[in-house]
Design a protein around this nucleic acid. Structure first.
Lengths: 228, 228
DNA sequence: GGCTCGTTTCGGCCCGCGCCGAAGTGTGCC
DNA sequence: GGCACACTTCGGCGCGGGCCGAAACGAGCC
């Protein structure tokens, strides 16, 4: 298959929506995906057949239900790389004082797709490694201590993260303002969700920029020894 | 930008051909790319504008020439991941004795896009690491000893590999038959080209399968201590 | 200033693809 | 066996995008 033929599989909004939904690691039925993407079942059926034939998805029949999932962890990683890149790709070069101010805020703390980025994101990633909650010995991974810490902090990962067809639990994501890595993957997303839910960070306007709240400042210091 | 919009940039054969050509790390002119892809200059001009607007390419004007290159090393890595995945995606599940035999040959030695794969590819990657020609300490990289060894063996890398907009010099590429990594990137491609040029390996039929020749067997043993 | 070359702009043509509804098929339940 | 549900198949419709050539523009050279 050529690069163009492969990219064409994802170049349709409906098929892209299917693949993005399937990043959660679960198997979805054709009907669920049709509703999620807002298309007719016939449309969904045809798109799914193309994605399966193209090697991105795998299917399982159970009675009258057709379940599909991402074919391999490699597919999940590839889709995630693309989604993150597409999201970052809009990063502006500042031509005005307003834009430069916003970019400075984004360098401090922002979201990158669905996880924390900027100095905040890099500092959190560094702290997790320094405290032995993550290891980088043979590729990035959560340690036993890390799993215990997550449980103690009631930070939950999607149950299928890292399993067959699921997005990677952890992945290094290069931070374009800091030029070092912050934490992506299911864990990166869970940390970001937790920080927003517990009001440790809040959004600034409608972009990616985040502000660390006083409560967040304390929590980051107490839980991870992070001081910005 | 959405995943679909991003993928659509590469979903056209002409634009895909441009990006693949630009993986060599050089800057090409619009006219050169038009000829390379076999399209009219007007067609090339419009496609290049879309790729630049989409963030995949960067342009430089020099007089009447419009030079373009891949925008960042991250773009180069992404394109390469996609190309390799698209190439691997056709790997068959064997349904006949002939297919099973061919798959066994491919497990032994084959090409993966433009580099060595299979047991041969993994063994070569392992040997380069074991002999200190590559290091994996802070990401995969060629060591000083490795550069000296390449010079001694007259194995040349493209001059712009690893530089701005060029494909990575080295990259781990997961081998789907061995479930371990073989060596991709510019160095992986150079080693594969050298092995073919010096008749250390030869192609079997029109697929990916390779046969190690007696000369190749000796060369691999003497140069890298690899015995298959 | 004139000529050549590289590139851009724009209108027109054609084709591929995504959408849907209707009808059909297979599964599951009563 | 009958009914409901999930999904598939297929024909029709409409739209977007890729192609090109011609004309125009800008750079470079003499």
């Amino acid at each position: 298959m050529s690069l163009a033929a492969f990219a064409a599989l994802l170049a349709d909004p409906t098929r892209a929506a299917f693949c993005t939904a399937l990043l959660d690691g679960r198997a979805w039925t054709a009907g669920e995906l049709a509703r999620q993407a807002g298309v007719a079942p016939s449309t969904a059926s045809e798109h799914l057949s193309r994605l399966i034939a193209g090697g991105l998805l795998a299917e399982e029949r159970q009675g009258r239900h057709r379940y599909v999932r991402l074919a391999t962890p490699a597919v999940a990683t590839l889709i995630e790389d693309l989604v993150v890149f597409a999201d970052q790709g809009d990063a502006p070069t500042p031509h005005s004082l307003g834009a430069a101010t916003r970019q400075s805020a984004e360098a401090r703390a922002r979201t990158c797709y669905d996880h924390l980025a900027g100095r905040l994101g890099v500092a959190v990633a560094d702290a997790l490694l320094a405290r032995g909650l993550l290891t980088d010995d043979a590729g990035l991974a959560v340690t036993g201590r890390g799993r215990a810490w997550l449980t103690a902090q009631a930070i939950e990962l999607p149950e299928r993260a890292g399993r067959r067809g699921g997005r990677p639990v952890v992945r290094n994501c290069l931070d374009w303002t800091e030029r070092r890595s912050h934490l992506g993957g299911a864990l990166g997303a869970a940390l970001c969700r937790t920080a927003l839910d517990r009001a440790w960070v809040e959004r600034i306007g409608s972009g990616r920029a985040l502000r660390v709240t006083p409560a967040g400042d304390r929590a980051l210091r107490e839980l991870l020894g992070v001081k910005l």
